[in-house]
């Protein structure tokens, strides 16, 4: 591609490739993956493996059918597989997980042209398709294996006055929920690693989680006293897929804004929609819908927050002056 060679100056070439970025993301997902194995048992690891393998196979097959060069080497299919598996309950039949991988890789990613061309996060769309298709199976959360109960509701489904799991349970993840979303500490560790390695910007996760916390706190104040508001906020932040979504899905390069201001708007938008769906909607969890909706407006956010290069001229302003 000699057409793109423009500049004479000596440029520094970074060693960061798509493959290395994806490798970092996989590494950062490892703590949560191990914890899901610890919490939900071997079946969790099995589902994650099924998702990874079928995602990679679907990617390879579609590229083959479309006669495009193979892209499984960039490991993005592996990341999609892990993220999708993290969004599934452990009791889900394996063939439903495979349908999810088909939706994610073939329909959402490859039909739009592969990595970099998809407008929505593949794992998120796959989760939503599975959620609306197999609602019963997708909302049957098996309790962690070291609890006595067989199934229990996700902490989000509890209401004021119900007995709720303790904060330590939420942090360690010994509550009901999807595979990878229960252990907050493991997810936070992975997210911090990504931020330190400068793979993701901290703006989106902070804006996302922060806005959910603020809105939940205000809502909590309207429902009860100060201590209830604090408790309500903690549950809203620590339970459900919020931390997983904020660190690993709302920071996807392809489907989220590239400008700093855009990331902030994106995060707050996600937080607001999540809060609205959780509080007033009919589904208990709104993280996936909020990220998908904000994915769709991402091009507009990017255009709206485009930065002026140094010495650049705003043509619209010039026209108005003239």
């Amino acid at each position: 591609m000699n057409i793109l060679t423009v500049s004479p100056s000596p440029h520094v070439r970074g060693c960061m490739t798509t493959q290395r970025i994806m490798l970092c993301v996989i590494l950062s997902l490892m703590p949560a993956l191990i914890m899901s194995g610890v919490i939900f048992g071997l079946k969790a690891i099995l589902i994650i493996s099924v998702c990874i393998v079928s995602s990679v196979i679907f990617e390879a097959l579609t590229r083959m059918v479309m006669k495009k060069e193979q892209t499984i080497g960039d490991l993005s299919a592996v990341v999609t597989g892990i993220l999708l598996a993290f969004n599934l309950p452990v009791s889900l039949p394996w063939w439903m997980a495979i349908i999810g991988c088909f939706v994610a890789i073939v329909i959402v990613k490859q039909l739009f042209g592969g990595l970099g061309q998809n407008f929505a996060n593949p794992a998120i769309v796959a989760r939503i398709v599975l959620m609306v298709s197999f609602t019963a199976e997708m909302t049957t959360w098996a309790a962690p294996r070291f609890c006595d109960v067989v199934t229990e509701a996700t902490p989000l489904a509890t209401e004021y006055g119900d007995t709720v799991p303790s904060w330590t349970d939420l942090l360690i993840g010994s509550t009901g929920g999807c595979l990878g979303e229960t252990c907050a500490i493991a997810l936070l560790a992975g997210g911090l690693y990504l931020i330190i390695r400068k793979i993701i910007s901290p703006v989106t996760p902070i804006a996302f989680i922060g806005s959910v916390a603020v809105f939940s706190f205000i809502y909590g104040l309207t429902q009860g006293d100060m201590s209830y508001a604090l408790q309500h906020t903690a549950y809203q932040v620590l339970s459900g897929g919020l931390i997983l979504g904020a660190f690993f899905m709302a920071t996807d390069y392809v489907t989220t804004p590239i400008t700093g201001m855009g990331k902030l708007i994106f995060g707050i938008g996600c937080g607001l929609i999540t809060f609205l769906i959780r509080t007033f909607g009919s589904y208990p969890e709104g993280v996936s819908f909020s990220i998908l909706l904000m994915n769709i407006v991402t091009p507009y956010i990017d255009r709206f927050t485009m930065q002026m290069p140094i010495g650049g001229i705003d043509f619209k302003k010039e026209e108005k002056k003239a």
Binding site: I99, I107, V129, V132, S133, F134, T135
Partner: peptide
């Protein structure tokens, strides 16, 4: 057949 209810919804219709 295990029903995949997304096909009955409008999103599935468009698909």
């Amino acid at each position: 057949m295990h029903p995949v209810s997304v096909f009955v919804m409008s999103a599935g219709g468009f698909f």
